[in-house]
Write a protein that binds this DNA or RNA. Structure first.
Lengths: 270, 270
DNA sequence: AAGTAAATGTCGACG
DNA sequence: CGTCGACGTTTACTT
């Protein structure tokens, strides 16, 4: 057995170039113990469900996490070649000279089958420790910072509420300008395209059809496509650039804060 | 050195429980040689770019592919915790007692920094062989099967063309019905929601504004949301269910075909 | 369970 | 290089 474990590595299991049977044995154990599993091998992959796919033999890296999500990566690209979301039923076995991994999802019913001829490496990590993760500047966070600092948008603006249900959907934010006119805001955290402009237009038309003829519509985004601007201008709507970095500083939320090295250290030395 | 390589595994490199310096050495070599790299370690992650994120120390699996895409997975979930798309600039080094991996993307400028305290496993695969991959039943494939079998939609239908440029976009497919009326089709491979109905409506209105008042609009999908059906009916548009499995059989395309074990074998034994 | 909108969406195609 | 739409989108949230 090429199973190894150092003092600080008690939770790690690894086999390098194992037989199919050895690989299957470790993988079964890892499935039972809810470990985080890794399989680097030469495989064929089959999938059928909402779509269907097939691949010829090639090098793939398969990850099975404790929550039974399955991710199959080929040697290129950010996106996995095949996958199965968490909660799948995963099984491992040796059939007809291949290590076969199956992952079944119900609702929708989808099956992923991996047929591995040669296994390069099998790894497992028991009781993995999840990092705490915090993502800044989601759309809702941008909205909250803007609602707290309406002067960033225009003078005399008073924000009254967020997430106003209108027709089929929600207005991100709304308030009254210095002249007392109702202003409705649509917020995008990335460059706003035509579809964002259409979304705003739809809300404005819904409000106007309810008699609110004097409503302004403003699209807020770090940037705008030409076609978005065209649609906004022909529809009598407005748009205003927002500075994400400025908002980020205003939010200035930190999960880890003190002690932890800041990203800006690295950015400085880039 | 815990570097290992068997006959059939000449392309594999692996270090189990290496020192940070050993790990960095192997990773630098793999970067130079355009290998496929794997790092299983206890890390903190920082990201700033279109968004910004931060994580506390925890177990992560980092993949760096030959095309310089970087994918960082935590122990849970289908989606990576952090990532960088292909074409990034990746560097590895030891700084202040940590193995530091940086991945920089330009345009948009985004930086990902990993700070690893303990390395469980470093693996590398040289000259990885990409599986050939084929995905069945994309929207275009559905369209082509329907165009070749218009009787599946309605009797007497004659398909004239696909991808007709209209206004800002393309009509998926169009033709003439048994009464000689122009019919425009919008195809969705999954349940069609309101947005699909709106899309069709937009095309129809564009065509009518060009004087084609007698045009029919039909939404084709395996299923429809209630709100989509409402919008279609109030707009005088039509919808028709399509059977993906039937289309799949009609397409019956196989990349690998003979010799390769068929997915249906596994489906049968589920 | 179903629908709707966000996402560091990614990816590919086309102008 | 921008813009647009598809995607096995996934994910989160609300009804």
């Amino acid at each position: 057995m090429r199973l190894r474990g150092c003092r600080a590595l008690e939770r790690l299991r690894a086999l390098i170039g194992p037989s199919l049977r050895e690989a299957a044995g470790l993988m079964e154990a890892l499935l039972r113990e809810r470990g985080w599993m890794l399989l680097w091998a030469s495989c064929r992959a089959y999938y059928e469900g909402r779509g269907a796919s097939e691949s010829s033999r090639g090098d793939v890296l398969v990850m099975v996490k404790p929550d039974r999500s399955v991710i199959v990566h080929g040697p290129r690209g950010f996106k996995p070649m095949n996958w199965q979301p968490s909660g799948s039923t995963v099984s491992v076995g040796v059939e007809a000279g291949s290590l076969v991994v199956k992952a079944l999802r119900r609702n929708p019913r989808e099956l992923l089958v991996l047929e591995c001829g040669e296994v390069y490496l099998v790894g497992g990590l028991l009781e993995p420790r999840s990092p705490e993760f915090y993502m800044y500047m989601s759309e809702s966070e941008i909205r909250d910072v803007l609602a707290a600092n309406p002067g960033l948008i225009e003078d005399g603006l008073r924000i009254v509420g967020v997430e106003l249900p209108v027709e089929p959907g929600f207005v991100d934010m709304y308030g009254y300008d210095k002249d007392g006119r109702l202003v409705v805001f649509e917020i995008k955290r990335v460059k706003a395209g035509e579809s964002a402009a259409r979304q705003l237009l739809r809300y404005i038309e819904a409000l106007r059809s309810r008699g609110l003829s004097n409503v302004r519509g403003v699209l807020l985004a770090p940037d705008f496509t030409e076609s978005a601007i065209r649609l906004l201008e022909t529809s009598g709507l407005e748009y205003k650039r927002i500075d994400l970095r400025r908002l980020y500083e205003l939010a200035s939320r930190r999960l880890l804060g003190r002690g932890s090295r800041d990203l800006l250290d690295y950015l400085g030395r880039g």
